[in-house]
Design a protein around this nucleic acid. Structure first.
Lengths: 342, 342
DNA sequence: GGTCTGTGCGGGAGCGCTCTCACAGTGGCA
DNA sequence: TGCCACTGTGAGAGCGCTCCCGCACAGACC
């Protein structure tokens, strides 16, 4: 079979070496910035590279170095709505910016279902990436196990469900939620509801726990009918708010476990004729950009994303470099941002 | 230097071959589903693979096959807001679903600025991917040229600015916009404004052209003061609407070049005390999920995303397989979806 | 019995790179 | 002058895989 390919065969190290009149080893040294090369040889190699438009073949290099200089950020999310959550965009942007100055590449991988998670697991195990940052993990996801079993460097954004020894970076969800509800209590509200995140996600669970802890600490009762589960989307938040209102029309405050859901809740409250904050006070969680510009501006819990994203990459790189060191984790402080809604 | 790595060395083809009592070649045949293997040998290899938990090293394979079985979807977008546009989520989800049944992997690459585009260009040229789908191209982006020059199989989502020979899939933006404004004319509106997309993007340019064409076809004048440039975001849409209202308080209709912007425009109109559609009729573009649930439900132009995403991958795969064939392109029809806003 | 086709399998080269090692050349120092 | 470091360089092995080629053997056919 003759090769009728019209795609230009890319030049190899050898061709560069021949053109520059040096050995392959020297070209390799120049490409990898080794100091032990004479200025003349370096110049000759550089001009040969330019002339041939040489680009190193990463597959060949990776085969010997066992490194791809690529890390994966996995968005593990069946719900398309959530995919456009500003929280994700911020993390992606932050990690990407952190890596911009390095020669590391970032690839995003998305999984809608378990099958796609398996596929991503295979992709990682086949050696395409040096490490993985895992976002939006649900309780039954197989991916953390697949990756951990394969010995793949891994950092989770959000702590794992069980107390496994995996590195993670998380916001203090429990503390933040506690502060939110404590604020609602301190400002004199008596019937405080909550719209939780999905309870198969640790952020959902922890924020609910914080809310309950604040109630308990203040000597209040925890009322199950004042808790509605949302899904971190605006639509889900609106739906949960309607359901809470139906169950207890007298409620006078609500802690909503994410800003997109809070926007939905605000909409539902307006539709139900409630004024915010006069009739019902609302506190969100995230301090997303939307929080400042919704009506009324949303009191919310700020997640320290500017701390979290560099940490995420730092912990991962440390694992990739210092193989065998124990995985480290970090929890970042949250803070209450007071605006008009509560 | 002794290797103190604790990461388990992954087993190789050779080890599988030894354990199964066959040659490397036979293991390779089994792994690649070649029919010329006896059932006994196949079974032996399979059990050896299972026992060793063997995963083929893709770098080694790619080195010889010149294939990575990975394609990249590049989101080329400086504006983080736009990153959470539902349109992107739909494309990503669609392409991902199309590839789910194949053994092709999909990676998402994002570029916020030109430097990151260069980095992506390098990533692609180094041989990490077999082909690229490029989204959200702005007029000065260097990436299309970098990729095309490197002979990388490429399909653009949205036609290119110049009439270069690059494959693309696009919606009929001009026709859709024309239909939108024609609808506004037909329903008796006289002062029809438009909020355009970014005019450094072809979708922005084409939709504006369609709007103007509809006005001209109806014998109307094109008024520059009734055109405001948005950025495809909700915030940008609201801002553009305010500016239009300030310039011409009497306007009675507006064609908004994307649904997120239309949501912003709706908000601005409400804030300005205008009723929709009684005072001002609004038509959007996209038929995003949000269009059906905003208040009032949005009349909009549907993009045939379910046609477009399979086409995107199909055209790319055809380029990857049939090297040297001329690049093919497609334009998909749009349709008016009538709801309450116009 | 001899030749031929077909099937299953293994040997071995080679994909493009890195990296160890050896070697020639230079200069410093006793 | 002799010895030792040190520096720049090249030869060559080898990373894990695929794939071409050739061999052994089985069965079909003259």
């Amino acid at each position: 079979m003759t090769d009728i390919s019209t795609r230009p065969a890319s030049p190899t190290l050898d061709e560069v070496a021949v053109l520059a009149g040096v050995s392959r080893a020297t070209v390799s040294r120049v490409v990898n910035d080794s100091p032990r090369v004479s200025p003349e040889a370096r110049a000759a190699v550089h001009s040969a590279i330019a002339e041939l438009r040489y680009v190193p073949n990463r597959m060949a290099r990776s085969l010997v170095t066992r490194r791809t200089d690529t890390i994966a950020l996995v968005l593990n999310e069946p719900n398309t709505q959530v995919f456009s959550d500003p929280f994700f965009a911020s993390i992606v942007r932050g990690v990407s910016a952190t890596l911009a100055d390095t020669d590391l590449n970032l690839v995003l991988l998305t999984a809608q279902d378990e099958r796609e998670q398996q596929k991503i697991g295979r992709y990682a195990r086949q050696g395409h990436v040096d490490g993985v940052i895992l976002m939006s993990v649900h309780s039954n996801d197989p991916l953390p196990d697949i990756l951990a079993d394969a010995g793949m460097p891994l950092v989770m954004c959000g702590r794992p469900f069980d107390d496994r020894a995996v590195a993670y970076v998380d916001a203090d969800n429990r503390g933040g939620a506690e502060a939110a509800t404590a604020h609602l209590i301190a400002t004199g509200h008596s019937r405080i509801a909550t719209i939780t995140g999905p309870l198969d996600m640790i952020a959902g669970v922890d924020r609910l726990a914080g809310h309950r802890a604040a109630l308990t600490a203040a000597g209040r009762q925890v009322h199950p009918e004042l808790e509605a589960e949302g899904d971190f989307t605006e639509v889900g938040g609106a739906r949960a708010m309607e359901s809470l209102l139906a169950r207890d029309p007298e409620l006078d405050a609500v802690f909503v476990a994410s800003d997109p859901m809070a926007v939905g809740a605000l909409r539902a409250l307006r539709a139900a004729g409630r004024r915010v904050p006069e009739d019902v006070a609302v506190v969100g969680f995230d301090d997303a950009a939307v929080a400042a510009r919704c009506d009324p501006p949303l009191t919310t819990i700020a997640q320290p994303l500017t701390d979290m994203t560099p940490l995420l990459t730092e912990l991962l790189l440390r694992q990739i470099e210092g193989v065998g060191e124990p995985a480290e984790s970090r929890v970042c402080h949250t803070s209450l941002v007071r605006r008009a809604s509560a």
